[in-house]
Amino acid sequence: MSDYAHPEVLVTTDWVKENLGKPGIALIEVDVDTKAYDAGHVPGAVGFNWETQLNDSVKRDIISKDDFQSLLRESGVQNDDTVILYGDNNNWFAAFAYWIFKIYGHDDVRLMNGGRQKWLDEDDKDLTVDAPSVSPSNYTVSGGRDDLRALLPDVLAASKDGSHNLVDVRSPDEFTGKVIAPPGMSETAQRGGHVPGARNVPWATAVAEDGTFKSRDELEAIYTKGQNLDRGKPTIAYCRIGERSSHTWFVLTYLLGYDNVRNYDGSWTEYGNLIAAPIEKG
């Protein structure tokens, strides 16, 4: 992992095992399958529900600053903790949570490389159904990074003037408009296709067979050389609801060291519902 631009943002499953229960480390599981945590989690890990705890329950938005602060207080996370995030589906929602932690200015956040699956597959790693013992903290959100998030006007402008790398991380069938969403997904759009000017780099191309991230060389070959992403330009990544693109945002920002990468969490479920917005198909 050492040749990544910011290798300190990843920890191995072995590192997590060695550091279980140590003070100053907050383990947090965030899954696509919101039942997975209850079935079994890494000992001491707190579980966040992406639907009800990381998103606003009324308007469509990420959790507010105040709610984030309350969530971390209830979860016993301290401002100077090293937060380790992991989850199912190659850390989709763990990466989404990572992005939110950074938006609200938490300093030391890391992903467990390989996620829940790698931990499950390793015989020397334990799971538990026991709830962690949590002492509420005085967590305070002080700073914040609005510049990690792209909103619709940013995307419309970027599409029009070609000033950005626009990266659509969905499957090729979603990108071309053959399907509007993967089978079984309830959040969808009125139209299929992609934002004009976007390149299709499915998120999973960043992941090796064992579920960990590919090497820096492989990632450079995919994004920088293969897709000709221009390191001199800012980048906006999007998907369907913003979780898969958080994964790519993480790869571009921390593993490849791109400057100025933003996640458009409105993604296709916002863009594909707009009246009169330009759409490319095929």
């Binding site: 399958d33 589906n89 190659n90 699956q117 089978p183 079984g184 999973a204 992941v207 064992d210």
Partner: peptide, 10 residues
């Protein structure tokens, strides 16, 4: 629910 998007090594 087995309908999730296929992904490496899952």
């Amino acid at each position: 629910n087995d309908e999730l998007c296929p992904a490496p090594g899952l």
